[in-house]
Amino acid sequence: MAEGDPIMVSFENISKSYDKNPALKEVSFSVEKSELFGLIGPDGAGKSTLFRILTTVLLPDSGRVLFDGEDVVKDYQYVRNQVGYMPGKFSLYQDLSVRENLEFFATIFNTSIAANYDLIHDIYEQLEPFETRRAGALSGGMKQKLALSCALIHKPKVLVLDEPTFGVDAVSRKEFWEMLKTLKEKGVTILVSTPYMDEAALCDRVALIQKGNILKIDTPRRIIDQFDKTLFKIRSSQIYKTILALEKLPHLGTAYSFGQEIHLYASKDIEATDVESQLLEVGIADAEVKPGMANIEDCFMNLMVAENMEDHVG
């Protein structure tokens, strides 16, 4: 790799099937050094498969992955020394204490806690009062912090986090993303996957992934800018009735609920007043329709629909 090459990880035409079910279909993209890169998609999208190939625990059927310029299959030992991997399932030793787990991971990487403490200081500090507690007896949020500390103790160049916030409450999720931001500022390249669309906004760039295909890769900002429909935000006292009414008016577009609002993805020639008057005709009198900005979840659903339609055509 040339000095100063900005690319840290590149996936080139990666495919992988389990039995005959394709999990990844010719996936290609690159992640830059010190980038916080998000892989956003639901269960079954292929996120874990991609991460397992990157971290050398699974072989791809075809394609290759370059990690800091090295092939992850040929130079797996280099990769294993330079990657910190936090799998989706809690994988620390439940019967070892907090301190023992951390020491164990430091030892197998031929290092010590003291040598790399600066990187984990902010995170591990919160665990120090419970150093002698068995890992299995920690709460969910604390387990997650310990797992992150263990994944970082050998000062990896790249941190790979598979759904670290799955099933975690909104408060702990927020704290976790703040920790990731700090790590990124310290120069760690981070690949993180999540099913929570709102977390996409916290990444430098994201890949939206569904059924083994990348739907889109870009900065969250640019993905939103590329939303190709008019988005209307609709409020009404009868949200569910309004959704059902809109399902019967498909020429207006596709409607999805967002909390107490409905988002309607309409073609560019439809005006807010068209929507209001057609809703009025079917008995929804109090609908308030205003154009609004799409979020990442809107973009994802808009792309998902497009993809499914092509599936049916194809």
């Binding site: 998609g41 639901p42 269960d43 999208a45 759904e163 799955f166 099933g167 099913p195 669309m197 569904q210 999805y256 609920s257 979840e297 994802f300 659903m301 998902m304 629909v305």
Partner: peptide, 13 residues
């Protein structure tokens, strides 16, 4: 109990 965790946004709705 968390019936929609991990499900895609359209299926969730």
């Amino acid at each position: 109990d968390e019936p929609t965790s991990g499900v895609d946004p359209i299926t969730r709705r």
